[in-house]
Design a protein around this nucleic acid. Structure first.
Length: 555
DNA sequence: ATACGATGCATCC
DNA sequence: TGGATGCCCTCGTA
């Protein structure tokens, strides 16, 4: 059952990379040893010693004046730990870690990223599932009602690994969230850091609209209305919960946590987590004060008083309602916990389960079909999976080491289930650290089988050099949407697109057009005009040509 | 080519 | 509890 995965000879590259990195890491070790040897002495002394050795003129002047010369050492200085004797950073397309720091990937001391076992094979980080039987009543319910729905057959994974179309400069700030339209297959909506919401018909590539006045800043989460799929809800760092008509762009605010405006950052409230519970007819949203708000979707009014669901004054990063059990709610936050709640009994401290993590939890999702599993993404560079919320929840069934570090300039990484996978095991997540692919540093989008911890596919395109922290798989089609700094990419399976288009056809790949230059180097804030035209479409010929030129092409 | 800056979280007291 | 401080693979712009 070989999955459709890599288009490039990755194993070959890995071997090549390993030999490269081993060389460089052994150099580093030598440097480290040298550094250790002199580390006992004062750093200034070290600089002076260097000068005496390297520059006789300088040394003679220093003996004349009997004063230390102010010189700049030519010796390598590490920009990470500021010590001399070694360097960290990119050497070509390979990043060399500072040997003084713990591994940037798994956070363990004693080795660096390039030699980390998790870099090559993610299954090293998998803790086996525990098979404790709790024999609780909920487990009985699970066995009887839900287990039959979980497919024991592993389907063939279809990986969208070919750029179908990509739009750059569609948003003027980084992408923060993506959602596929629940019924119209070619519609993708996107939110950005500035508060703008995009609606893109990627079937017609150029048809896109940007609504610039829905939110004042970061759109953290969006959800389509179950009652009317022309309406989308949004939770924003401006402290409002919006309801927007996608046809008109007319938006209304269902909740405003800052009715008195700006009174300093210490009092400003922001909304992050958002989900809807159609059985109960409510929206749930949560803020940076640890509070959960409930909004009735019929009356658009807040019901009840907010409930403290995470540590006081800490951010609730995500909410997810159970797909089958309307009473279950999952939340996660900056207090390092993911929690399961009974919606009928929402009180501070009354969560059914509190799932501890060692760092901030970026996201927590029930599995899409049965909701019996939980997947979390934490800033400790680990994906965690609990195999059955009706079984043993004392510890996660699996922990998978994966690079998705926190970086204040990037949207937080969130691993997402494939909603189409009946076995509830395929997950997509962007990768932070780069790999050297034929001399180009690229950040793949990883597909991981969380039942084994195996990396099923690493999706890359030589034209996409940026990190893509936001990824969403289509609920019905084999399509992946990726959000990056300012661009959105659509991916399809490689075989399919070739069947559909033929070799010499124009593939409709829209890459970095010249709209930037057209605007005289300045980006207009109200980017609602459609400035895409044929000039921005690359033909397959030019696309392949640009690929052939390799690393020179700027995207 | 290189420098700059936006700005979230951990850690310290 | 809150302010000050310091940051390791960013990325677009000047």
């Amino acid at each position: 059952m070989a999955p459709q995965t890599r288009n490039m000879p990755f194993p070959k590259i890995v071997i090549q990379r390993d030999s490269d990195t081993e060389e460089s890491s052994s150099e580093d070790e030598d440097d480290e040893l040298q550094n250790d040897a002199v580390e006992e002495s004062d750093e200034e002394q070290l600089v002076e010693d260097d000068d005496d050795d390297d520059d006789k003129d300088e040394a003679s002047t220093s003996t004349k004046t009997k004063r230390k010369p102010i010189t700049i050492s030519l010796k390598k200085v590490c920009k990470v730990c500021k010590k001399s004797g070694h360097e960290a950073g990119f050497k070509g397309a390979t990043y060399i870690d500072c040997p003084m720091k713990p591994c940037f990937l798994c956070k363990m001391p004693g080795h660096t990223t390039v030699t980390c076992p998790h870099r090559v094979a993610t299954e090293y980080g998998v803790a086996p599932a525990s098979h404790k039987r709790t024999h609780s009543s909920v487990e009985y319910v699970f066995e009887r009602q839900l287990k039959s729905r979980v497919s024991t057959m592993k389907p063939k994974f279809v990986i969208p690994n070919k750029v179908h179309c990509a739009v750059i400069r569609y948003h003027s700030r980084r992408i923060t969230c993506l959602e596929f339209h629940p019924t119209r297959n070619n519609i993708l909506i996107s939110g950005d850091k500035k508060g703008q919401v995009g609606v893109w018909d990627y079937g017609k590539v150029h048809e896109r609209t940007i609504y610039g006045n829905i939110h004042g800043c970061i759109v953290n989460n969006m959800k389509f209305s179950p009652a009317n799929d022309g309406v989308v809800y949004g939770a924003s760092s401006d402290g409002t919960l919006s309801s927007t008509d996608l046809e008109t762009g007319i938006s209304s605010s269902l909740l405003n946590l800052n009715p008195n405006g700006w009174n300093g950052s210490s009092t400003w409230r922001m909304l992050y987590g958002l989900d809807l519970n159609s059985d109960k007819g409510v929206l749930v949203a949560a803020d940076n004060y640890g509070l959960l708000y409930t909004v009735d979707m019929r009356s658009n009014n807040v019901t009840g008083s907010p409930t403290l669901i995470h540590k006081k004054r800490s951010k609730v990063t995500g909410l997810h309602c159970h797909p089958l059990q309307p009473d279950l709610l999952l939340s996660c936050g900056n207090d390092h916990f993911a929690r399961i709640w009974d919606m009928r009994r929402l009180e501070a401290g009354s969560s059914i389960y509190a799932l501890p993590h060692t760092r901030v939890v970026n996201s927590a999702y029930f599995s899409p079909q049965t909701g019996s599993k939980i997947l979390t993404t934490s800033q400790d560079n680990r994906l965690r999976v609990w195999d059955s919320i009706f079984g043993n929840m004392d510890s996660p069934s699996r922990e998978i080491v994966h690079s998705h570090d926190f970086n204040r300039h990037l949207t937080a990484f969130r691993a997402e289930w494939d909603p189409k996978d009946v076995s509830e095991s395929l997950v997509v997540v962007g990768r932070y650290i780069s790999e050297n692919y034929n001399g180009v540093a690229l950040h793949p989008i990883d597909f991981i089988d969380v039942s084994t911890g195996q990396l099923v596919a690493e999706v890359i395109d030589p034209n996409i050099r940026t990190i893509t922290p936001v990824n969403k798989l289509h609920p019905r089609d084999d399509v992946l949407a990726s959000g990056s700094s300012r661009s959105i990419f659509m991916w399809r399976p490689r075989e399919k697109i070739e069947l559909e288009r033929g070799k010499d056809d124009e593939p409709g790949i829209v890459l970095c057009g010249n709209d930037e230059k057209k605007r005289n180097g300045k980006f207009e804030d109200d980017d609602s005009g459609d400035d895409f035209d044929k000039k921005n479409i690359m033909t397959k010929k030019s696309y392949l040509k640009s690929k052939g030129r390799g690393s020179k092409r700027k995207c």
